[in-house]
Every structure is written in C-alpha cells, then in structure tokens.
C-alpha cells in the first residue's frame, strides 16, 4: 500500500522516472519515510503504554529478591520495559544498589535498558525486517545477561562510590494510582516527545540512505568493509560509541551501507555500539563509580558486541 502511494506521488505527481538515479532515490526516500513514521508512532505508543506498568520502583522491587543468573535474566528483560534515560542513570543505579540488588544484576539492567530501546527496534524492523529486529533483541539480551554475570563474578563492589545521604532509598513516595486514561495520555505525550526529538535525524538518515542507495555503486564498500575484513567489526564498534543520540538517523544509513557490501554482522555490531555503549552515559556514571569499573563495563560489553558481529558475519549469508 505504501509502495503504491510512493509510486503515485513520485512517478505520477512529481513526474520522475523510475529508471533515473534521482527518481529511484526520491522514491526510496518517500517510501521509507512513510513506513518508518508509521512504525514509530505505533510502536512507541505501545511500548510507552506498557511502560506505565513498570516504573523503576516496581522493577527494583521485583529484582531485589533475586540472585545471580535468574536476577540477571530478569534484569535484562525488565530493562526493555522500564523507562530509562541517560540523565536518570545515576539515581537509578544507586537506588538499585541500595535496595540490595547485586552489582552484576544491576549491570545487566544498565546494559539492556538503553541497548534494546523502542526507537532502535522500529528502525531495524522498518529497514531490515522483523527477523533482524528479533536477532538484535536476542543478542542484546544475551550480552546484557552475560556482562552482568561476569561483572558479578569479578567482585568489584569496592569500585562503586558511596554517596552519603540521610534517608534510605527503600521507601520512595510513588505518586498515586494511575488510571487507564492517564496511561494513554502518558503514552501519547511520550510518543510525541520522542517523535519531535528524532524526526529530523530520521529524515536526514533516510535522506542520506536514499542518496547512497541511488548513487553509490553496489558492492562498492565490500572491498573496504566486507565481512571477510577482520577489522570491520571492531572499527564499527569504536565508531558507534560517540553516536548515542543519533540512533534514529544512523540505522537508515547502515541499511544503505549493507546494500553496498558491508557485512550484516558488522552493521549489527555498529548499531549495538551506538545504543549500548554511550559516551555521555559513561561520563555521567563517573560520579558513582571509579573509572576502572566503567572501563571494565565498557570492555565486557564491547567484547560481547564484537563477538555478536563476527558471529552474524559468519552465519548470515
């Protein structure tokens, strides 16, 4: 349906020819833009509605009775549905630790929550199809669970800074019961907020993607970053670290790069680094943990991401 609308708009109304580079680039842009915005609105609304049932206090209550393994698995899963933003990382981290949640379990949450986020999922689904989106969720969960277990085994509790304050964090005053109407309102305003924030990046990303799609020769990049190049995965991971806020714009470009010969595993590693390893988050976390712990955390997650990249470069033909 979207295809016929894009056909109609680009070829009939604008009078562009499907056989020209410009025509096919514009068609690609119109089609992807409509599809992505439709998915963004639907999915973000659903996810933010579900989220109203999982405020951090509830997640913490669920996790506080859990130990290693079960705790790590639950923490990674809850990371998907608990709202998380980089600026809340510190109070959340301290709140978890003070409630007696093991450090490793807390880290499983800290890895999965930003990495498996609704915007990245929509972009992956829209650009690469649901199979890749599912692979992404699954690999993200595995990385979060394993990283947390490893950090738990390292016994690095001494690297967490102690913040002195009067009252225990156990008894947060959660504002009253939420009605169905309020949940819908929250989901609506959250969806609008996110859309406003990322719309421009999505458009730029799709625009650049459309340009690459139309103008860069197929397999052009295979010689530089094909899956037989061992350095492609670590390089992609490194480049992804400082790109946190632009996950929405990065994915359409990655799609175009994959078309031109970049390995799919390399692309996955890149996107996981963009969402899961974030420089601003590390800087914020410095207030509550020693640099050594941040480095340990980043290296473990980084190794996990690169492993995933190599694995999917091998498996997906």
């Amino acid at each position: 349906m979207i295809t016929s609308f894009a056909d109609w708009l680009v070829f009939r109304i604008l009078g562009l020819s499907a056989s020209t580079l410009f025509g096919s680039a514009v068609h690609f842009f119109v089609y992807d833009t409509i599809k992505i915005f439709f998915l963004l609105v639907t999915i973000i609304f659903i996810v933010s509605f579900i989220r109203t049932y999982f405020p951090p206090e509830r997640t913490r209550a669920i996790l506080s009775h859990k130990r290693t393994y079960i705790g790590n698995i639950l923490a990674a899963l809850l990371g998907i549905v608990t709202p998380f933003c980089t600026c809340s990382a510190i109070p959340l981290f301290l709140g978890f630790i003070e409630a007696g949640i093991p450090l490793g379990v807390t880290f499983s949450f800290l890895v999965s929550s930003p990495m498996i986020n609704e915007v990245a999922l929509v972009m992956l689904w829209g650009m690469f199809g649901w199979k890749i989106a599912v692979i992404y969720i699954f690999s993200g969960l595995v990385i979060a669970i394993i990283s947390g277990i490893v950090i738990g085994m390292l016994k690095v509790e001494t690297l967490v800074e102690t913040i002195v304050h009067k009252t225990p964090a156990c008894c947060a005053a959660v504002p009253g019961q939420t009605s169905f109407r309020e949940r819908v309102d929250f989901a609506k305003s959250y969806t609008l907020d996110i859309l406003k924030k990322i719309a421009i990046y999505v458009l730029i990303g799709i625009g650049l993607g459309a340009w690459i799609h139309g103008y860069v020769p197929a397999d052009f990049l295979a010689q530089y970053a094909g899956k037989d190049k061992w350095f492609a995965v670590p390089l992609a991971t490194l480049i992804g670290i400082p790109l946190y806020s632009n996950a929405a714009g990065v994915i359409p470009m990655v799609k175009a790069l994959v078309e031109k010969g970049v390995g799919l595993g390399t692309a996955l590693a890149f996107m996981m680094a963009v969402t899961g390893l974030s420089l601003p988050e590390f800087l914020i976390l410095k207030k509550v943990m020693k640099v050594k712990l941040i480095l340990i955390f980043a290296s473990i997650v980084g190794v996990g991401i690169m492993f995933t990249g190599y694995l999917f470069n091998l498996v997906i033909k």
Binding site: R60, S88, P91, L92, E98, I163, H165, K166, C171
Partner: peptide
C-alpha cells in the same frame, strides 16, 4: 545526587511541592 536520593527518587525530572513528590519521570 545525595539530595535527590533523600527523596528516594530513581527517575528524573521530578517535582516536589513542600517536600512531597507529585510527579516523576515526565
């Protein structure tokens, strides 16, 4: 952060009127 933790808040921004939190996380 120590003051925010005194309120038991894990999600920001939050708004407190006369020492009582009325909204958090949005």
């Amino acid at each position: 952060i120590s003051d925010i933790m005194n309120y038991g808040m894990m999600i920001t921004p939050a708004l407190a009127i006369d020492g009582k939190v009325v909204v958090a996380g949005r």
